[in-house]
């Protein structure tokens, strides 16, 4: 009897644990006050902060996130995921979603910008100090894959540098031959650098959060070679909770929301071109 009782408790404990680890279950039970946001991986920290403020201003409201590479989110949207808001790290993936009809053309708004920066482990094992140094032999460079926006911009930077007189002939080719991995998202690029596996990586300036700032050194990329990434956000046309989605969007664009984004290294809309 004791034994079965104990086992019963154990079972209950396991079920409770399982319940806790399945946020989807509890999220669906009260969908009215939920706003589900699909946001680019690079927005993870600022959007979590924004959600905290938004939830404090709107008691009872829950902001539920899915953070991933924009291209992955766009695919999930195309496959019919039930979402209220989509925040992309580039226009191309927003365009892809508009093409599937899940977002209505004209509803998208740019809410911030971002630019590239080269990061190295703090102790800088390869001794890099200029962008030209990236072409030195045996530098282990990690980039994001070209289908990830930041990977696309990294390649664009190399192409622009290649035709700039400040860089040696064959710069682009030399740098590309140093690439040891094309990572699936920008956070993975930063992790490889923070862990010291790579000598250098190219990430967004906003990726260097306060807690990793001490672990990395950086080389900035001049605006003439950089790509200013514009981040668009839009409500999904068949959003289960369109009103709340619109409210969160307005909050992101409000002075308070823009201040949060700026605090995380993003460029506020009014400072963009």
């Amino acid at each position: 009897m004791m034994w079965t009782l104990k086992r019963g408790y154990l079972l209950v404990a396991i079920l409770l644990l399982a319940g806790c680890s399945l946020p989807g279950l509890s999220a669906n039970s009260d969908a009215k006050n939920n706003v589900t946001v699909f946001a680019a991986a690079s927005l993870t920290d600022p959007f979590r902060d924004l959600a905290l403020q938004f939830e404090a201003d709107n008691p009872g409201v829950d902001v539920v996130f899915n953070f991933a590479g924009s291209q992955q989110l766009a695919q999930q949207l195309a496959q019919g995921a039930a979402v209220d808001l989509f925040a992309s790290a580039n226009e191309a993936q927003m365009r892809a979603v508009i093409d599937t009809g899940r977002v209505t053309e004209g509803k998208q708004r740019v809410f911030g910008g971002n630019k590239l920066v080269v990061v190295m482990p703090a102790e800088n094992p390869a001794g890099l100090s200029t962008l030209q140094d990236l072409a030195k032999p045996d530098v282990k460079l990690v980039l994001a894959a070209k289908n990830v926006p930041v990977g696309d911009y990294s390649l664009a930077f190399l192409e622009k540098a290649n035709s700039s007189p400040q860089f040696a002939v064959g710069y682009e080719e030399a740098v590309l031959s140093n690439v040891v991995s094309y990572e699936e998202n920008v956070k993975a690029v930063l992790s490889k650098v923070v862990l010291g596996e790579a000598d250098a990586g190219i990430v967004y300036s906003s990726d260097i959060s306060p807690d990793v700032a001490g672990q990395v050194a950086r080389i900035s990329i001049p605006d003439s070679l950089n790509t200013l990434a514009a981040y668009p956000i839009a409500p999904v046309s068949d959003a289960p909770n369109l009103a709340l989605a619109q409210k969160f969007l307005e909050f992101v664009l409000s002075p308070a929301g823009q201040a949060v984004l700026a605090g995380h290294g993003f460029i506020p809309v009014e400072e963009m071109d």
Partner: peptide
């Protein structure tokens, strides 16, 4: 694999 070996066409 993607964490430890990274992703490079033809190599990993």
């Amino acid at each position: 694999t993607i964490i430890f070996a990274g992703n490079f066409p033809g190599r990993t």
